[in-house]
Design a binder for these strands. Structure first.
Length: 597
DNA sequence: GCCGTTTTCGGCCCGACTGTTTTCAGTCG
């Protein structure tokens, strides 16, 4: 490796991937500290279960709807997996901005050692070994140590291990890891289609975070059922899209595509399908929760089935429903399997009846070629009718975005055209617009002109860098506009490309709930905005939602499923979503706000 | 350090694969 290349590599490693959001909530800082504490415990050789305790606490705090800074000691202990000691640490952080126990461990090991564990294949044990035996305290140190040949020859580091380490470092620098759900879904669909044709393949489906519909995917998990795994393994490892075979065993093979995406294939006997699908869907945290429950019932759960612990007799394995049922649980939808209280809710019979794609009766945020869309009004309407929508809103950009060249006259002409097309085919046409929320919270037109629209979406398109107070006022003022029905892509993040704007989201959601303004769940795969955690926080404040595609072409209407998946991850039902309501109810929602204003 | 539909104390999910190991530790999911 050339020295110059090394420098660039290390710089990219150090910069890492941009944070997806800049949401300042004490919960995020606390979760971050607890995760670091868990890592440090593992690195310094602390007891494994203590590391797990803080990992669980980190997740619980990050996903907790209430801001921890508003909770007293008792409230803190009410968070799942937070007991007296952990609550004390949160209180300590809120009071002093630091946690002494974390500082202490930080003092024992350089931050760079924790950084090392981001390299695939390098865990806490070997990272600390590199530090203690070679003084490697950063990624840069490690690159140098490998080049100097000091790593080869360490106990446990053969030639093979060093090669893998080098590859891991390059991989970390190149990808930073996660891809959009749409990219992963396309790769998965292609592979599933090819494997389904292999003789002996009984079933094959994507599992993992793709089945749980996480907003980004680290690697694609595919599960297949067959009594004869070898032909599947053979086919998989030989697919044209394979750039690299990482792992190749009798029942598990991992490859990397030319684009750098890792895909894992697991093959299980058909009789174990349900247990295996449950296991490989995860999340890991959900599985641990479910397996602990099995252990307490004198059972043990693996990808091969649910067994009695004493004599090993098989209790269930054929379907997921059966596995959950034998643990006295209803089937839990994959989008909920994140250990965010779904097992507890399931036990109480309180699982939400999640919104489905077929519940959506119309799209409320779409474009045409009048502004930046590529399909004509007629083409968009035909595609919408094809989907069976009851109603459909056309919401081209308004006049404050100069690049869109919108004028009052063009907008009114579009409205006339829309009215002419109405009544044909039973789908009700709504004329709307996507307003621009200006830096001060104002929008493109005055009340007189806005009153002519059936509904308005309003979104931030510029001045992303405003401070939190200004941005919060801006969004609240938009909510207070009587003609704004939906706030479009509220955080304006672009996944892997642009961070979220900084706002006090709890204050914004409060205003949205009070004014009867819906928050959009923009279904575009690089937006998914709001995301699942903010959806949960908004729902807790009584906010309503609109799941829209923001389609700029007829093919984009099909992206709706990603928005619905994200809504499900936020525990939403059809009642929470205004475009799952009959038209009369939707109109009543719009009119109530206009009258109140 | 947290937690309980047999527990307020004594446990803490489970298996595949790799590499280097002469019987298994480390890592991953």
């Amino acid at each position: 490796m050339q020295p110059q290349a090394t420098t660039g590599l290390v710089r990219r490693l150090r910069e890492g991937t941009p944070r997806l959001s800049a949401m300042a909530r004490a919960n995020d800082a606390v979760a971050e500290l607890f995760q670091e504490y868990a890592d440090l415990i593992a690195i310094t050789g602390g007891e494994a279960f203590r590391a797990r305790v803080y990992e669980k606490a980190a997740r619980a705090v990050a996903g907790y709807p209430a801001d921890v800074s508003t909770l007293d000691r008792k409230g803190l202990e009410g968070i799942p997996n937070v007991g007296g000691s952990t609550a004390a640490k949160i209180a300590e952080y809120l009071g002093t901005g630091r946690i002494e126990a974390v500082e202490k461990l930080r003092g024992r090991i350089p931050a760079g050692v924790r950084e090392l564990t981001r390299i695939p294949g390098l865990g806490p044990k070997r990272a600390v070994q590199l530090y203690e035996q070679l003084g490697v305290g950063s990624l840069a140190d490690l690159v140098t140590a490998i080049e100097d040949g000091r790593v080869a020859g360490l106990r446990g580091f053969g030639a093979r291990a060093v090669t893998n380490l080098q590859r891991g470092i390059e991989l970390l620098a190149a990808s930073g890891g996660r891809v959009l759900i749409s990219e992963a879904a396309e790769v998965a669909a292609e592979i599933v289609g090819l494997l389904a044709a292999v003789p002996g393949c009984m079933r094959v489906e994507p599992a993992g975070s793709l089945r749980r519909m996480r907003e980004t995917i680290g690697d694609v998990d595919i599960l297949a059922a067959s009594d004869d795994p070898e032909p599947l393994m053979e086919t998989f490892a030989g697919l044209p899209l394979v750039a690299d075979v990482i792992v190749r065993g009798p029942t598990k093979t991992s490859i990397r595509t030319a684009a750098g995406l890792q895909v894992d294939l697991r093959v299980v006997p058909p009789a174990a399908w349900g247990a295996a699908l449950q296991y490989f869907t995860g999340s890991q945290a959900h599985n641990i929760r479910v397996r602990e429950r099995a252990v307490r019932a004198g059972l043990t759960l693996s990808e091969y089935g649910l067994f009695r612990a004493d004599d090993g007799e098989l209790i269930a394995s054929g379907t997921e429903e059966e596995v959950y049922r034998r643990l006295d649980l209803p089937w839990i939808p994959p989008v909920l399997r994140e250990d965010r209280g779904e097992v507890r809710a399931a036990l109480r019979g309180e699982l939400p009846e999640l919104i489905r794609v077929e519940d959506i009766l119309g799209d409320l945020h779409t474009h045409t070629d009048l502004t930046d869309g590529v399909s004509s009004l007629e083409e968009m309407l035909a595609a919408a009718r094809e989907r069976g929508y009851r109603y459909y809103a056309v919401t081209d950009h308004a006049k404050d975005l100069p690049m869109q060249r919108m004028t009052d006259a063009k907008m009114l002409a579009q409205r006339d055209r829309l009215r002419e097309l109405a009544g044909d085919g039973g789908m009700v046409l709504l004329h709307g617009t996507e307003l621009n929320i200006g830096p001060d919270g104002g929008v493109d037109w005055d009340a007189g002109f806005l009153a002519g629209f059936d509904l308005c979406v309003a979104s931030v398109h510029s001045h992303f860098g405003q401070d939190q107070a200004t941005m919060t006022r801006r969004l609240i003022r938009a909510c207070e506009n009587p003609y704004v029905t939906v706030i479009g892509h509220p955080t304006t993040r672009l996944i892997n490309r642009r961070p979220a704007i900084d706002a006090d989201w709890d204050a914004v959601f409060q205003a949205a709930a009070q004014t009867g303004t819906a928050m959009e769940i923009n279904a575009f795969p690089d937006r998914l905005d709001l995301g699942d955690e903010l959806i949960m926080r908004a729902k807790a404040r009584g906010v309503r939602f609109a799941i829209d595609t923001d389609a700029h072409s007829t093919v984009h209407l099909g992206l709706l499923r990603y928005g619905v998946g994200t809504a499900g991850r936020g525990w939403l039902t059809a009642r929470d979503v205004i475009n799952a309501w009959p038209l009369e109810e939707l109109r009543a929602f719009i009119d109530a706000k206009r009258r109140a204003g």
